[in-house]
């Protein structure tokens, strides 16, 4: 039963990966910004849930919406006050400024929270149950379910709500959107805020299944990027699927090749996908 168990672990972890990438794909698709500080936003969300849990004693799952609201506000202000100043600049510049933000957030976090490892450990964190001979960890299953639920919510907002219509219009044609009375500045801020809130949720869940340090951002950014490319930028469910694909591929690579060559496998996979897959619905750089 090793292989099915590995596959199950990969799928559950992959759902969380997909949630990590969801916010990045949204911001990339609408604002044309590849946000290199996305991983740092995930990290901040993780710390938010951690402190809500340890200081106020709030259940970490109940703390998720609070952390998401806080991250939305933070993302909104970040875009409104800072990133809107450069949003139409060359791609290299937006890459660079979000990279700078990543550095700032990482080291602010280090000053504020120290470099210690932290884990969000509610009483039920080790709980699991067995189905058909497979062990299902409760927290990971819940994380997977929340990822699906948030993807569905995002899909609904984008496809059915007036806000979603405005977002889609703006991502396709800035000038036309302006003519229809959309204020791109605030719309961009809202979109980035939603992206940050999704990152916050992903961070809280990540803190329950893994360790938080101020430095996890860079790796999570790279992972989110790969998943966003695999899943494309237009459909939230495809992003989750992309996450599941990466989660399963990682688990299988660790099983069959051992942990020493995961980076080589990862890189081969990344380049293979990039070269084979024709650019999705992304504006040329």
């Amino acid at each position: 039963m090793v292989l099915p168990q590995i596959l199950l672990n990969g799928v559950l972890l992959g759902g969380l990966y997909g949630l990590m990438a969801l916010g990045m794909a949204l911001v990339w698709g609408v604002l044309n910004i590849v946000n290199l500080s996305h991983g740092a936003l995930i990290m901040l969300g993780g710390y938010a849930v951690y402190f809500l849990f340890t200081v106020t004693g709030l259940d970490p799952f109940a703390a998720l919406p609070v952390a998401m609201a806080a991250m939305f506000a933070f993302g909104y202000l970040l875009q409104r006050r800072l990133l809107n100043l450069v949003v139409r600049s060359a791609l290299l510049n937006t890459l660079l400024i979000t990279f700078g933000l990543d550095v700032v957030l990482t080291y602010l976090a280090q000053l504020a929270f120290t470099a210690d490892f932290r884990t969000i450990n509610p009483t039920y964190s080790g709980a699991n149950f067995a189905v058909a001979g497979l062990t299902v960890p409760v927290v990971r299953l819940a994380a997977f379910g929340i990822a699906i639920a948030l993807a569905a919510t995002l899909w609904f907002v984008l496809a059915r709500s007036p806000l979603g219509r405005a977002i889609r219009a703006t991502s396709q044609n800035l000038t036309a959107a302006r003519l229809y009375g959309v204020d791109p500045g605030s719309l961009y801020a809202v979109t980035f805020g939603i992206g940050a809130a999704l990152a916050g949720a992903a961070g809280g869940l990540y803190g329950m299944v893994s360790n938080l340090t101020p430095y996890i951002g860079a790796e999570l950014t790279a992972k989110s990027f790969v998943i966003a490319i695999i899943g494309g930028l237009s459909n939230p469910f495809n992003v989750i699927l992309g996450g599941v694909f990466v989660g399963v591929a990682e688990s299988l690579a660790a099983l069959y090749l051992g942990p020493t060559f995961t980076n080589v496998v990862g890189f081969g996979l990344l380049v293979g996908i990039l070269v084979v897959r024709p650019s999705p619905s992304i504006r040329a750089a």
């Binding site: 590849v34 791609l91 890459l95 790279a222 990027f225 790969v226 490319i229 020493t260 060559f261 995961t262 980076n263 080589v264 990862g266 890189f267 081969g268 990344l270 380049v271 990039l274 070269v275 650019s279 040329a284 750089a285």
Partner: peptide
């Protein structure tokens, strides 16, 4: 030859992986 066919962020991110992969090969 393969990765210079990619544009913009695709190229940038593809290059991100080269370093880690090579470090792994060398350390083996």
């Amino acid at each position: 030859l393969p990765i210079l066919r990619l544009r913009g962020p695709y190229f940038a991110i593809a290059t991100l992986g080269v370093n880690g992969a090579m470090a792994e090969i060398v350390s083996n």
